[in-house]
Design a protein around this nucleic acid. Structure first.
Length: 712
DNA sequence: GAGCACTGC
């Protein structure tokens, strides 16, 4: 009886024979917790029963070949009532768990009844793979060829045609369309799916569709129907935002997951994770695969090393340990999908990528450290910080749910029930914690007024102000009080890159270096092109030397990109040079896209050849707010150890050259530098840096240089 | 002389 693990079921006991709106059941205590106290495993970690877990107040709808499969989906079983609600309401919120079929079925049901009229139904997704695969699925279900009735539109790929009625697209793609037509007149239905993820694009789209619906009504244009689809979430704020629109709940088809909490607080979650893995390993059947949530590459590599050491002597079946994080080359990610031989247990060590982006089959057991690595941004210095912090309750549930995809499962939380209850219910939306200049430029370009634009969660006022000041500085808007787009700003908004980079591109013809600027901006806009595995670090650093430029990291990046473009066998070449083929190939796609926009603007496409000064000046024309100067004490050499690389940014904040950068070893250190980003870890480091001549700033941005001098 | 989670246009 004295169990070290106390158990409580997560499954709802509630059954409802029809769906109802939340308003009608506010006082109903609906979610019951099933308790039992089986002793599961012998444990050094102590687990206890949680105190009063949060009830969610909702009721669910219950409800061979593709058609047969469709008919079994919960959403299909209640389609009559559902369509009635869709017809009667211009806006509604639909809460549906995984497996309810909402994403694939609702657009089809609308189309089957021709409710879209002569217009199209748009369904947004936060991820491109999701948009593509769901569209393919729906095309198969409707027995049509993809790109005809059912299509998709994602960056670099538009598989739609004039007859497309059901169009899946990424949220960012619909946002781009809104710049051209803020009323989104092409569409009679807009379905914003996965709304609980609260991406910046979806958050902005909430406001865009709300205003478009209102204005279309006022102008007596055809009406716009809005459906917000989401997993379980706090709907009150959403319903209020959309003028108290109805909320409908759909039941999902997932399996129950039993939750275990740690009885004591864990000092070291990595250690706790390793302990839990081996406790479970000794007591559960080998065909139960584990999924462990960790925060990053380094942590995964270190835990993997520990597991491999311990497993040599541990009790239990053989183990296959698979790392999984976004930076892992695709070939190595494949291990995760391969079924292990009979009698071998698979243990997947994953970052957040396994929380929503990827679904790993056959996971029976989730081990949740309860932490996540998050990027935050400081308005005053412009520095970014990566920090490990406790994730929100919603994320914990999402992680636990990964154990119940194909069969009942279990989730072991390496934090106490009290710690869980103290966590915020939801992740802070992205829009509240990110640099806003790109979003503000987009909003203004779509004809919106930043100060009155309706957002569910407004970012801090100083963050908005800082972004408007930057846009004014770059010449994209005429005023940071009542911002109107300038001619330059209009062009800038056409490029799907950070406004600083679009400014670089638009200045490039002036410096005769558009060829180089395109390549550089493309590389800077994609992920890290260097691949550095921990155990081969020295080799990787050595190979990098041949691309290194004494002028700095930007020219180094350009050297790599140019060499990649010329390499005949790119995959092989990348492997030999410790480079990331996926990210370099992505950079090539971006370059092509940027080039076509430049051609549309009739820009002169010229090359500066070996006159790299021109390119750096051009880069400065967009990034001139990212300059740093060597401090006098450091320059005179008398400041003792560590003085090298002591710089001050324009805001006066201290910053150092990142040791992995090309300029770090340079003696004497350059008096002035241009950095791409400021990253705060142990100290404030400038990442991706080039040396500049101090007088360039006067030439490129004279007014700013004057203000800078006055402040320094 | 350090170490980048995840998406998206």
């Amino acid at each position: 009886m004295d169990s070290k693990y106390a158990v409580f079921g997560q499954t709802s006991e509630v059954k409802a024979n029809n769906f109802k709106r939340k308003k009608q059941l506010v006082n109903m205590p609906v979610k019951k917790i099933k308790l039992s106290n089986d002793t599961i495993i012998k444990s050094e970690l102590k687990y206890q029963k949680p105190q009063g877990t949060k009830d969610s107040n909702f009721i669910k709808i219950n409800g061979g070949d593709l058609f047969e499969e469709r008919r079994k989906l919960p959403v299909y079983m209640v389609k009559g009532r559902l369509m009635e609600e869709i017809i009667n309401n211009n806006t509604m919120i639909l809460i549906g768990e995984t497996g309810s079929g909402k994403t694939t079925q609702i657009p089809q049901l609308i189309h089957e009844q021709h409710l879209e009229g002569t217009c199209t139904i748009a369904i947004t997704q936060p991820r491109r793979v999701a948009a593509i695969t769901v569209a393919m699925r729906v095309a198969a279900e409707t027995n049509s060829e993809i790109g005809t009735i059912v299509g998709y539109s994602v960056r670099f790929e538009d598989v739609t045609s004039p007859i497309t009625k059901v169009k899946y697209l990424t949220d960012g793609m619909l946002l781009r369309e809104a710049i051209i037509d803020p009323l989104l007149k092409k569409y009679s239905f807009i379905i914003l799916d996965e709304a609980h993820e609260r991406t910046i694009s979806t958050d902005v789209l909430f406001g865009i569709v709300k205003l478009a619906q209102k204005e279309r009504h006022q102008k007596k244009l055809h009406p716009l129907k809005i459906i917000i689809m989401s997993a379980t979430m706090d709907v009150d704020a959403f319903s209020k935002y959309f003028e108290n629109c109805p909320v409908i709940y759909l039941e999902g088809r997932t399996h129950p997951v039993t939750i275990y909490h740690s009885k004591l607080k864990q000092e070291d979650y990595q250690y706790a994770a390793v302990c839990t893995i081996f406790q479970l390993h000794a007591t559960t059947p080998a065909n139960h695969d584990f999924l462990v949530f960790l925060t990053g590459q380094e942590e995964i590599e270190s835990v993997m090393h520990n597991i491999k050491q311990i497993s040599k002597e541990a009790k239990g079946p053989p183990m296959r340990v698979c790392p999984l994080y976004a930076g892992l080359p695709p070939a190595k990610q494949l291990q995760v999908w391969r079924e292990p031989p009979a009698g071998v247990r698979k243990v997947v060590l994953a970052t957040n990528i396994a929380e929503a982006s990827l679904t790993i089959p056959r996971i029976k057991c989730v081990i949740d450290t309860g932490v996540v690595k998050q990027r935050t941004w400081c308005t005053s210095t412009g520095a970014e910080r990566l920090s490990v912090r406790a994730c929100a309750q919603a994320a914990c549930w999402q992680r636990a749910g990964r154990a119940g995809r194909t069969a009942p499962g279990a989730a072991y939380r390496l934090y106490t029930a009290q710690q869980f209850n103290e966590r915020p219910a939801h992740t802070t939306p992205e829009i509240v914690r990110c640099p806003l200049a790109p979003t503000m430029l987009l909003l203004i370009a779509a004809g919106m007024e930043p100060s009155t634009f309706p957002l569910i969660d407004a970012p801090p006022q100083d963050a908005i102000q800082a972004s408007l000041v930057l846009l004014k500085e770059l010449g994209a808007i005429d005023s940071d009080v009542t911002p109107k787009l300038t001619v330059l700003g209009k062009k800038m908004s056409a490029f799907p890159v950070d406004p600083k980079y679009s400014k670089v591109l638009l200045s490039a013809p002036e410096y005769g270096c558009l060829e180089e600027a395109l390549s550089l901006v493309a590389v800077l806009s994609s992920e890290n092109i260097f691949h550095t595995p921990m155990h081969k670090r020295e080799e990787a650093v050595k190979v990098k030397q041949k691309f290194l430029s004494p002028l700095g990291d930007h020219i180094t990046l350009l050297n790599v990109f140019n060499a990649y473009s010329k390499a005949p066998l790119k995959k092989q070449w990348c492997k030999e040079n410790y480079l990331n083929n996926k990210n370099l190939s992505h950079a090539c796609d971006i370059r092509r896209q940027l080039l076509s926009i430049c051609q549309r603007f009739n820009m002169t496409i010229s090359s500066c050849g070996s006159a790299t000064d021109q390119l750096l000046k051009c880069l400065l024309s967009g990034l001139y707010t990212n300059c740093a100067w060597l401090r006098v004490a450091a320059a005179s050499g008398g400041a003792g150890p560590g003085a090298m690389g002591r710089y001050a940014t324009a805001s006066g904040a201290p910053a150092a050259l990142h040791p992995a950068g090309a300029l770090h070893a340079l003696r004497p250190p350059p008096p002035a530098v241009l950095y791409t980003e400021l990253l705060h870890t142990r100290r404030s480091y400038m990442v991706t840096v080039s040396a500049i001549q101090p007088q360039w700033l006067q030439q490129v941005a004279p007014e700013y240089a004057r203000r800078c001098r006055a402040n320094r």
